[in-house]
Design a protein around this nucleic acid. Sequence first.
DNA 1: AGAGTGATGGGCT
DNA 2: GCCCATCACTCTT
Length: 180
Amino acid sequence: MRRLLRRAELARNADVVAPFLLNKLLAAGECVGRIVEVEAYMAMDPASHSFRGRTNRNAVMFGPAGHLYVYFTYGMHHCANVVTGGAGDGQAVLLRAIEPVAGIDLMIERRGRKAHLTDGPGKLCQAFDIDLAGNGIDLCRAGPIALFDDGVAPPTNPARSPRIGIRVGVDTPWRFTVAD
DNA sequence: AGAGTGATGGGCT
DNA sequence: GCCCATCACTCTT
């Protein structure tokens, strides 16, 4: 049994939605994967793209929860986020790692290797073919990219640790990981 | 397993 | 100009 995530489930603070998203499914075309590592980016969070206010790049973060915020970084990678919180407060959850479930052959083809297909934010975007064209997509509706619950509960005690690759906000344990 | 590093381009002060 | 919410390759323990 598989159902789309409801917007109300995502319209909460990012540090609540982040552990909630663990073990949920991301589907893009024929590719499906189980979310196993995420990071929360809060309102008034100096590490968040939304911290310095709304720009063309981060505009989706200030829109309604449940939409996909994609950005391009380091000149070659895309990263995928789920917008959370109340509309306008600029919160999101970064998808850091996913366990491949379906469409693995296509992921291998896109990644050009058979291992480490989706164990990083840039890697999973390449495997799922997520780029700026997907920025703003509603993940709570049937469409090219969507989020599903297939009945697997989030871990009761996910590992919490500091976020990665940021200079500020290192003191807050807003990275959530499924054990193993 | 871990450290060092080059690639590469849009966004912002 | 400078800064990245990165990756993969290389060399070293």
